[in-house]
């Protein structure tokens, strides 16, 4: 043992219990409990809807939680609206999330945003059941519980939508895109493909006030049109 081996103290079971709140995709960590869609709707209306909208559709404080998934997606486990061709304007939580445990865990640890960790276990089950119901993943009379959540997982619309891409997870991986170190007469298309729209010139405030008053350059005075 190193000379510092005994610094710190043993954690007590009750302490581990108090903090070990995470729930994994295999449901390790999920506490026993249950909550119905209707119980969840009550929680939602009183504690969630003000920020996320009555149907989880609000874009007011965050991207919508619900929307963009179909019965077909629930069948395939792939959200079709995520495909480029779909031109679907948004990516809601239910479109993206592959693992129902993620929602349970996150609501339990962080929501409501201004009172995180204030929900009871059964309230978390319930409000998650309500969200799943808004996405037509469970029926209106559903009671979500630790017993049936693994079945619900099998209906998550994007459950097959995730790819583990190791080269960007490992420090010593090799990325999928790189350049070559050409130094002279390199092949380029060369023309300007995109530039800041004229009406965005002032969208970030007056840039002269975001640059130093001395030095080799000044910020643009965006209250004025570009210099001639």
């Amino acid at each position: 043992n190193k000379p510092w081996h005994d610094i710190g103290r043993d954690a007590k079971p009750a302490e581990i219990k108090a903090w070990d709140i995470d729930v994994r995709p295999d449901f390790v960590g999920l506490p026993k409990g249950s909550g119905s869609v209707s119980k969840g709707e009550e929680v939602w209306v009183s504690k969630c809807a003000s920020c996320h909208g009555d149907f989880g559709e609000s874009n007011e404080v965050f991207t919508p939680i619900v929307g963009g998934t179909t019965a077909k997606d629930i069948e395939t486990g792939r959200v079709a609206n995520l495909r480029l061709e779909a031109h679907y304007p948004q990516r809601t939580t239910l479109m993206k999330v592959a693992t129902v445990s993620t929602l349970w865990d996150y609501i339990n640890r962080a929501m409501p945003w201004n009172a995180p960790k204030s929900l009871s276990t059964d309230e978390v089950y319930g409000v998650l059941a309500y969200i799943l119901h808004l996405g037509n993943i469970v029926p209106a009379d559903f009671v979500l519980s630790d017993q049936n959540i693994a079945d619900v997982q099998k209906r998550m619309p994007n459950r097959n939508g995730m790819v583990f891409y190791e080269p960007l997870w490992k420090v010593n991986g090799k990325g999928d895109v790189q350049n070559t170190r050409c130094m002279k007469n390199c092949p380029i298309e060369g023309d300007i493909k995109s530039m800041l729209p004229e009406n965005m010139r002032d969208a970030h405030g007056n840039l002269i006030e975001q640059n130093r008053i001395i030095g080799p350059v000044r910020g643009w005075d965006t209250t004025q049109p570009p210099r001639k």
């Binding site: 108090a18 201004n114 960790k117």
Partner: peptide, 21 residues
């Protein structure tokens, strides 16, 4: 940290910063 039998309040009682915005 001197832990009482069950554990320390610093752990068992979640602080405001863990339960607020």
């Amino acid at each position: 940290a001197l832990a009482a039998e069950d554990g320390e309040d610093a752990i068992l009682k979640l602080p405001e910063h863990t339960t607020g915005l």
